[in-house]
């Protein structure tokens, strides 16, 4: 099978890349562009560890063909930080102990980031619904939900927020 050249807009950079037509976006991100933040776990759309944004909306990159990702704005977890400066959400994950093994974290961050852009002060139920498609086998979710609730507005919050500041 022949490879073909496509252009993807990833984290505000235009990337020209040679792909097979059956390559998933996740394979291209990880294997061709060395953006290994997005993870493959189930590979069938159930676990959420491959979540990226397409035009700001969280989607499964393991179920998206690279061919289908042309002409849209793709954001991966590598695109959240501003250089070496973590986003408030990323910092909040660290402050609240929301990362254990870390495998689900990139997907969690991408789902949560999309939520916070739509709704900067989500309640507990809204956060849980937004993260319903992301599986974590370590944390029991509580710390993750706290981290999202307190991202960017640590003043009126929990002990973890206070000890972090």
């Amino acid at each position: 099978m022949e490879k073909i050249q496509i252009t993807l807009n990833i984290n505000d950079k235009s990337c020209e890349v040679m792909v097979y037509e059956n390559d998933t976006l996740l394979e291209v991100l990880r294997d061709k562009l060395d953006l290994t933040g997005s993870k493959e776990s189930c590979g069938e759309g159930a676990c959420g560890s491959c979540t990226v944004h397409m035009d700001g909306k969280p989607v499964r990159s393991c179920l998206t063909l690279a061919m289908e990702a042309q002409g849209v704005k793709i954001t991966t977890v590598e695109g959240l930080a501003n250089g070496d400066e973590l986003s408030d959400l990323q910092q909040s994950f660290i402050d609240h102990g929301a990362v254990q093994c870390g495998f689900c974290t990139p997907g969690m961050l991408m789902s949560a980031d999309a939520l916070l852009k739509e709704n900067p002060r989500p309640d507990d139920k809204t956060i849980r619904k937004a993260l319903a498609g992301n599986i974590c086998r370590c944390t029991g979710y509580t710390k993750i939900v706290e981290a999202v609730a307190h991202a960017g507005n640590p003043k009126d919050h929990c002990l973890d927020c206070k000890s972090a500041k």
């Binding site: 759309g45 959420g48 979540t51 397409m54 909306k57 969280p58 989607v59 499964r60 179920l63 998206t64 789902s111 999309a114 619904k129 937004a130 319903a132 498609g133 992301n134």
Partner: peptide, 9 residues
Amino acid sequence: IGSLQVRNV
């Protein structure tokens, strides 16, 4: 249906 990531697509 599914998750938000699935419903978006």
